[in-house]
Design a protein around this nucleic acid. Structure first.
Lengths: 222, 222
DNA sequence: GCCATTTTGTTCTCGCGTTCACAAACTTCT
DNA sequence: AGAAGTTTGTGAACGCGAGAACAAAATGGC
């Protein structure tokens, strides 16, 4: 009954934990599909590829959803995390820049299955307008304002070349978008009230190359 | 002349710094294209979107490539970072899984321009064999061993569905690949001598949705 | 009903990374 | 040449996150 803490507002989840919650969700989904109904922190941690102490600490920020001596109810915990993350809602999303990457993102089933609905595909190139990708028609970039206004879109995805990314971001912010996922290899300048997240496809590859390089030079020295 | 430290082997660069070096490289490339020859840490930090003190500390792990009272020579610093990262070399790469994402990755110009050369595209689906993507023909997955052996490939990219990712990873390791970039939404189990890096396209979106959710519920409470 | 066992939730400690602040070093102006 | 002004490189303080270790709570056997 009084399980909820008296100071709901104080529940500030560390950023590092928030970043791992999607991983736990994914692991729980897999467990659920395999028919597992109960799992220990040890088991779930192994499935998510993290330390079990870290997992328990992460979950403790959300509340006490486990049972000592038993473990966690897979579906219950899954729902609680999903609710906390906003994954039980439906999030309309617009994708700007329908090149190779934009195509791939529009077709990516992982978005839809996690509550993201692609409501519009926009591109500045006239040649692409009218093309249907993943069941959605590609429209002119200038339709951005109207679409964001009508559909209440809060999240925008940028998959354009680096040169146009800042301009697209400015227009998005102007239209009312407050969260941007940027796939263009560029640093975006936006107001403090807009959240920007960046995915750099080649960055990870460069880090791997660095470690390969190091392995090689270390063997030379030895 | 004796600028190099006496203990080259001790130069261990923190992982957090390594992760930012590609960002600096990108910013330096932009500056160079714009005709800038000299830049201060303040200027470069702004272009890279980080704190200037952090930038200076990061660069200090590589050596003393700046001049006090002046700043950094853009092209010189760029070369030094590239050399340290292994970006002056050519890295052969194989991509497995030529669906939407694999297509996009094969066509991504950012790989080639950073020293990565896609030497093979592999897919388990017969229907796709023979198709030419980005100038490279799609071949059967079973060719993996031969290609890795012939071309001395060290880095592999997985762009398959989650279900086949672990199997692909096992085969890659078996063939001699020591670094894997995984785009499949799955935790890979590999030996400790293999480096695995993961890019989750929907994870970042989920984190953004969390913050949107939080903004909304906070306003309700207020 | 009590004890042994299991597993969660939490406290504590340690180490890494970020940032501040300043000395060292270089340039330019007088 | 010396002083004033810049800007780098780094020592030191601080804060956050990771992981070990343990207390609290639930189950099951006797």
């Amino acid at each position: 009954m009084t399980a909820r803490t008296s100071h709901d507002a104080a529940r500030e989840i560390p950023e590092a934990t928030v970043a791992r919650l999607p991983v736990y969700l994914r692991a729980l989904a897999t467990l659920s599909e395999d028919g597992t109904t109960i799992c220990s922190s040890e088991h779930l941690a192994a499935a998510a590829g993290v330390n079990s102490a870290k997992l328990r600490k992460d979950l403790s920020y959300l509340g006490s959803y486990g049972t000592r001596g038993v473990g966690y109810d897979v579906d219950y915990l899954r729902y609680q995390i999903a609710r906390e993350m906003g994954a039980t809602r439906d999030w309309p999303v617009v994708i700007v820049g329908i090149g190779n990457l934009g195509h791939a993102l529009a077709n990516y089933s992982g978005f839809r299955s996690r509550g993201f609905r692609v409501v519009a595909l926009l591109d500045a190139d006239d040649q692409r307008h009218g093309e249907v990708v993943a069941g959605v028609v590609v429209r002119p970039f200038s339709d951005l304002h109207a679409i964001v206004g009508e559909q209440g879109v809060a999240i925008g995805v940028i998959a354009t070349p680096a040169a146009s990314a800042q301009d697209v971001a400015d227009q998005m912010v102007d239209a009312g978008i407050t969260s941007i996922l940027n796939f263009a290899p560029t640093v975006l300048n936006v107001g403090a009230d807009v959240a920007v997240s960046k995915v750099d496809l080649s960055k990870e590859l460069q880090v791997l190359a660095y470690h390969e390089q190091r392995k090689a030079t270390q063997q030379e020295t030895a």
